[in-house]
């Protein structure tokens, strides 16, 4: 398929991205570069200096809201993409409202509890919608442990074992790999 055809197929699609940290910011940028038509990006947080080791923001954006700053960054890469930014902490109720018309949902939270919450909410309420989650990406090296598994409409990218902690922080290379694997699965679903 030529890139023009790919863009044509993707322009009517909508992807919801839950969280604009390491996974969400990098995944959104990858999807914007290939011109997914509509991106719904959601985060309540503010950019801190410590985020710049993996998240798609710039030094002069420290202190800005992540959702608004990510929208600015996407617009600089591809102004044709329609980005709707929500400055909001998601819960099961708002997930159902904000993501109801999405073709695919990307789980891009950092905390295990939030990953659990969105996966259960989507599986229970949107049984036909695909959700692509990122689980296990702390530290460095060990490329071959990072993979994608599928259980019906739930896709999990990551090594499923390395938990982020003070001693084992998430860093740009592995987080970027998983974020781009998520974007790659989203494309696979959208171009089917």
């Amino acid at each position: 398929m030529k890139f023009e055809e790919i863009k044509d197929k993707l322009k009517s699609k909508t992807v919801g991205i839950a969280g604009c940290g390491g996974l969400g910011s990098n995944c959104a940028v990858a999807l914007a570069r290939v011109r997914v038509g509509n991106l719904l990006i959601v985060d309540f947080d503010v950019i801190e200096e410590s985020n710049l080791n993996r998240q798609y923001y710039f030094y002069d954006q420290i202190g800005e809201k992540k959702s608004a700053a990510l929208k600015d960054n996407i617009k600089k890469i591809n102004p044709e993409v329609n980005v709707i930014a929500f400055d909001k902490k998601l819960d099961s109720k708002s997930i159902l409202e904000i993501f109801k018309d999405c073709d695919v949902i990307v789980e891009a939270f950092d905390k295990a509890e939030m990953k659990h919450m969105i996966i259960e909410t989507v599986l229970e309420n949107f049984p036909d919608k695909a959700i692509v989650s990122g689980i296990g990406m702390a530290g460095w090296g060990d490329n071959s442990s990072i993979k994608t598994i599928q259980h019906n409409n739930l896709y999990i990218c990551g090594d499923q074992k390395t938990e982020a902690s003070e001693e084992n922080p998430p860093l740009a290379p592995r987080v970027g790999i998983v974020a781009n694997m998520q974007a790659n699965i989203v494309l696979e679903i959208l171009l089917k």
Binding site: F109, K115, I135, T162, E163, A164, P170, V175
Partner: peptide
């Protein structure tokens, strides 16, 4: 059967 565990990081 799927038994999937959630861990933090992202």
């Amino acid at each position: 059967v799927a038994v999937l565990h959630m861990i933090s990081g992202g």
